[in-house]
């Protein structure tokens, strides 16, 4: 198969997986316990790394941007510039990348080893749809938890920025905070929250698809885990661009 057809057929399979998971929302049985467990694993479990990422990213943004702003004597806008880039771009994208590394890998490794040890077959043989029982709770939890994680990342980023501004550049906390508050617009917040919804969907769908299509034993599990992380991360970054453009367009329309 040439790369293009392979890409298209994978895209088709992932879309089909999302569709089948989606329609199973509307019928019984539903696996609430599994969903709660996944939310805990994905949300609470990823909180530390996402918080750390946010804090240091916010910090480094101020660290790098402050001298330039100072040069133009607009250092009071530091909070504004950090808030905008963090909430619009870095918060969603970095959280998604961290979660894709942590959760995408875990999901595809778990499902992959269930495939190679025939547990998926056993599940089907016992009359359960693996998509309903395994895929849906995972994708759903990612879609719900990633926006929340992103918010946590954003907040810690702003705190990190504030700490750097005040401790290294001796800026008053209030100046930073005011600049942040002035800088954030509703459209920033909306686009910063819509993005992670899609990123969660991408990570979940890619990881589940890669896991479930594992072939070739234990080595295959390793391969599909790597694939899941790489492909999900790349898609997050590519999708981010187009999503930003689309949201810019839509939110501009909304303001008219």
């Amino acid at each position: 198969m040439n790369p293009l057809t392979r890409f298209l057929s994978e895209l088709q399979e992932v879309s089909l997986l999302i569709w089948r998971a989606f329609i199973s929302i509307f019928s019984y049985p539903r696996y609430y316990a599994e969903t709660i467990k996944q939310m805990d694993l994905i949300g609470v479990g990823s909180l530390p790394i996402v918080l750390l990422t946010g804090f240091f990213t916010g910090g480094v943004l101020v660290l790098q941007v402050f001298p330039t702003l100072q040069y133009y004597s607009i250092q009071n806008e530091a909070g504004n510039s950090v808030a905008t880039s963090l909430i619009r771009e870095l918060g969603p994208v970095l959280s998604a990348l961290m979660v894709s590394g942590r959760i995408g890998a875990a999901i595809s490794a778990e499902l992959g080893s269930m495939v190679v040890s025939q547990q998926i077959d056993a599940m089907r043989a016992l009359g359960t749809d693996p998509i309903r029982r395994l895929v849906l709770p995972r994708i759903f939890s990612l879609v719900v938890m990633l926006p929340l994680l992103t918010v946590a990342c954003d907040i810690l980023g702003l705190i990190g920025g504030g700490v750097v501004a005040s401790s290294i550049y001796n800026q008053d906390y209030h100046v930073f905070a005011t600049s942040v508050r002035v800088g954030i617009s509703t459209s920033d917040l909306v686009s910063g929250l819509i993005k992670p919804l899609f990123f969660g969907l991408i990570i979940g769908a890619v990881a589940c698809h890669k896991g479930l299509s594992t072939t070739g034993g234990t080595a295959g599990v390793g391969r599909s885990t790597t694939d899941a992380v790489v492909i999900a991360s790349i898609w997050v970054i590519i999708f981010d661009f187009f999503l930003s453009k689309a949201l810019q367009y839509l939110l501009d329309l909304g303001q008219l």
């Binding site: 040890s117 025939q118 547990q119 056993a122 043989a125 009359g127 749809d129």
Partner: peptide
């Protein structure tokens, strides 16, 4: 389809060669 198979599988018990227990 997979969905149509579910009621059929309800009446079949299967012992897998490798066990295939949920670990």
């Amino acid at each position: 389809s997979e969905v149509e198979m579910m009621p059929v599988r309800q009446k079949i018990g299967m012992v897998f060669q490798e066990g295939a227990l949920f670990d």
